[in-house]
Write a protein that binds this DNA or RNA. Structure first.
Length: 472
RNA sequence: GUCCCCAUCGUCUAUCGGUCAGGACUCCAGCCUUUCAAGCUGGUGAGGCGGGUUCGAUUCCCGCUGGGGACGCCA
């Protein structure tokens, strides 16, 4: 079996969005499993809207996700001469013809046709006129045999396509001489020997025309697989404005690439009941036959769950690397990895689903000045907590070493000394005093990662705070 | 308007004629517990409608409805 060749062909007119990322993932996974080459091709035919910035964003996004390509990035614009030559040859062979109808005329005739019950396709007015190169402003249309059957067996949708009479003679070259997307795609796929075209289902209806171009070129179309679109939580089409779609935005929001990959993989594809997939497992099992045919809504809650799952999975070292920028944003200073930070991350990784949330929960151990949550303070920093706190402080001051085990022993001793005080009666006031919040990791762990100096200072401050407030 | 496609819990999905229609996320409850989580256990919750085919349809066929996509000198 000859190795397959696939491609991901984004247009650099925005950022890499989740639909594109998933298409890239499917192409990549298919290629890796079957063995072959995965080509990256930037479809910048539309010079007006293409920018280097978004091209870079697409590339960075793919790299971040770990979807490495074997060839490219090619730029479609670099093949302009080749596209032009192909159009000329099509013209020479009579497979294409020049059309001098203006946009206005076309619009008017289309409307009239629809009003008369027609399909609104190009009426073929210039089809037999055989205009030469000197006919003035013109476009080039493909002469599509109306009796042709433009069908293919889609690897996802099965038998697909329609009769040529439904599509009409499409344009393949603009009046300014530049090629259209359909022509460029076909020529590039041919030149790059792409064997499998895996792309969004929004191209499903475009495929017949592209097959017609292939045939005009005397070439066999590649194998096609169209993957259903990802739709917004609203159920509608993804909107770049309203919906969170940009990969870099997800990255900035603290999602891990492996979580994104897993989430995207399961949007439309399944492997029995399995939900958790490492990237290697996706490569091992990915199969177009198990890609569904209906659109899928991107569910942020599922992503959060997956993200926490991978947060819990990560080795300390890479967890720190991923969390670092977020921790530094909270601390407003550089953070180096050490045993205390590792412990902090271990405690927080099961309490947060995203990195910004994790960093925020780490605040008490990262910055010296904390603020008390009013509700928590009012509930737990009351006069009744005074005695326990004042008993605990010297016990902590006298600890030979600041370890979780030592802290636990100190708490137990203190409770015992206070007549078997319930641990909660001591732990909650301490928690609020030290973290400012009523919610934090276990109290010994919390104190350990806070450090002795900060912890004691906050405990003393809490005592003063209670005294000043009295019984209020 | 024309053409194409899709249709299982709120969401992502399993099922390739016979299942109490399974799993996951979410939500709810209980357990655990120094708080919050995590974890464990349990629960709510689905085959759009109408016809066929069949001994038997979620599954196959047709229609309807609903949704999406494409009809561009965008990609």
């Amino acid at each position: 079996m000859t190795p397959i060749r696939t491609r991901f062909a984004p247009s650099p007119t925005g950022f890499l969005h989740i639909g594109g990322a998933r298409t890239a993932l499917f192409n990549w996974a298919l290629t890796r499993r079957l063995g072959g080459q995965f080509v990256l091709r930037i479809e910048d035919t539309d010079l007006e809207r293409s920018t280097h910035e978004s091209e870079r964003a697409v590339i960075e996004g793919l790299r971040w996700l770990g979807l490495e390509w074997d060839e490219g990035p090619h730029r479609q614009s670099e093949h302009a001469a080749r596209h032009g030559a192909v159009v000329e040859s099509l013209l020479a062979s009579g497979a294409a013809y020049r059309c001098v109808c203006t946009k206005e005329e076309l619009d008017a005739r289309r409307e009239a046709d629809i009003a008369a019950g027609g399909k609104g396709l190009y009426d073929g007015r210039c089809r037999e006129r055989l205009y030469g190169p000197d006919c003035g402003t013109h476009v080039v249309r493909l002469r599509v045999d109306p009796n042709a059957s433009l069908r293919w067996d889609d690897l996802v949708f099965g038998p697909s396509g329609q009769d040529a009479s439904e599509i009409g003679d499409g344009i393949i070259r603009r009046s300014d001489g530049t090629p259209l997307f359909h022509l460029a795609v076909v020529v590039d796929d041919l030149d790059m020997k792409i064997s499998h075209v895996v792309r969004g289902a929004d191209h499903h209806s475009n495929t017949p025309f592209q097959i017609a171009i292939h045939r005009a070129l005397g070439a066999e179309p590649p194998t096609y697989a169209h993957v259903p679109l990802i739709v917004a939580p609203s159920g509608r089409k993804l909107s770049k404005r309203r919906d969170p779609v940009s990969i870099q935005q997800f990255r900035a929001d603290g999602y891990l690439p492996e979580a994104m990959i897993n989430w995207l993989a399961r949007l439309g594809w399944s492997h029995g009941d399995q939900e958790i997939f490492s990237i290697d497992e996706i490569v091992e099992h990915f199969d177009l036959a198990h890609v569904g045919r209906s659109g899928a809504q991107a569910d942020p809650a599922k992503l959060d769950w997956l993200n926490q799952h991978y947060l819990k999975q990560r080795p300390s070292e890479t967890l720190f690397e991923a969390a670092r920028p977020f921790l530094e944003a909270v601390a407003e200073r550089p953070i180096e990895r050490d045993a205390r930070i590792d412990r902090l991350l271990d405690l927080l990784r099961e309490r947060a689903s995203r990195l910004p949330e994790l960093a925020e929960r780490a605040r008490f151990a990262l910055v010296e000045e904390i603020s008390l949550d009013p509700t928590a303070a009012k509930k737990h920093l009351r006069p009744v907590a005074l005695e326990p706190l004042e008993a605990l402080i010297p016990a902590l001051e006298g600890l030979p070493e600041w370890t979780e085990a030592a802290l636990e022993a100190a708490f137990e001793d203190t409770c015992r000394a206070l007549g078997d005080l319930k641990l909660g009666k001591l732990a909650q006031p301490v928690r609020v005093a030290v973290t400012g919040s009523a919610a934090s990791p276990g109290i010994y762990e919390t104190l350990y990662v806070t450090g002795r100096a900060w912890a004691l200072a906050r405990l003393r401050r809490a005592v003063e705070w209670i005294r000043e407030r009295g019984d209020a």
